[in-house]
Simulated scan of single mutants.
Amino acid sequence: MNLLDINYMLELVPILLRYLPLTLGMAAAGMVLALMLSAGLAVIRVLRIPGLNAATMLFISFFRGTPLLVQLFLFYYGLPQVMSFLTTIDGITATIMGLTLHFSAYMAESIRAAIVGVDRSQTEAALSIGMTNGQLMRRIVLPQATRVAVPTLMNYFIDMIKATSLAFTLGVTELMGATQKEASGSFMYFESFVVVACIYWAIVELLAWFQRRLENRFNEAYRR
């Protein structure tokens, strides 16, 4: 008896790849939204805006302290019971919401640390020549903080792609959901999950290569 049905695995690859755009699309949408939200949260934490700072800390604590799967179920199954306008939400939207809120809580702390890590003498010099806090953030702090935060943010994007595999629990037929259906129909669970694991692995390795190139690009200006 062969350990693996290679022919079945090769035939499965193009079938699963048809669902890859949805997986990457959910991750990309979640990343863009999470970046915008986390940047705002980080600025609030750095400036310690009264009222908003406490709410931000509570938000970060909740979404870092509870599992992503629980959050997805809360958005898709729980909230529509108390907010009727959410009854029309579909699994894809709920997944993007979950990814956005969950990862923005982690990314906000990474961005905050990068902002705080900018040399204080530069911020004092900028303020001494009349820059506002907004100009200081846009022109001095955020460009430098971006270089520091990029590696960590790329890691979060990689984690986000892998986290989209939870979307099948909401009935979304993405990469993992399609694999589950194919495995259930053929009863070749081992081969099916080996194939999908290799696809995820290939995506992660490609992004890791891109991350190294991006880091080198950002670091060029600091090399002597």
Results as ranks from 00 to 15, higher is better:
Leu136Ser: 09
Gln122Gly: 09
Trp201Gly: 02
Ile44Gln: 10
Leu20Met: 12
Glu182Pro: 07
Val116Ala: 07
Gly65Asn: 11
Glu174His: 07
Ile89Leu: 14
Phe103Cys: 02
Ala42Gln: 06
Arg18Phe: 07
Tyr19Val: 00
Phe85His: 05
Leu86Val: 05
Leu17Pro: 01
Met97Gln: 01
Glu191Ala: 08
Leu166Ala: 03
Glu191Thr: 06
Gly91Thr: 05
Gly51Glu: 07
Thr152Gly: 09
Gln211Pro: 02
Leu47Trp: 15
Ser104Phe: 00
Val195Leu: 03
Tyr189Ser: 01
Asn2Asp: 15
Val150Gly: 06
Phe73Tyr: 15
Pro80Phe: 00
Ser104Ala: 03
Leu12Gly: 00
Leu3His: 08
Glu215His: 07
Ala149Thr: 00
Gly177Asn: 09
Ala34Ile: 00
Asp5Leu: 10
Thr56His: 03
Leu170Pro: 05
Gly30Glu: 02
Leu136Lys: 09
Ala54Met: 10
Ala94Tyr: 01
Trp201Ala: 02
Ala221Phe: 13
Met188Phe: 12
Ala197Lys: 03
Leu72Ala: 12
Leu175Ala: 00
His102Arg: 06
Leu47Ile: 12
Leu22Glu: 08
Leu37Thr: 04
Tyr200Ser: 06
Gln144His: 12
Gly177Leu: 06
Val196Asp: 02
Ala54Gly: 08
Leu41Glu: 12
Met9Tyr: 06
Ser61Thr: 14
Tyr76Phe: 13
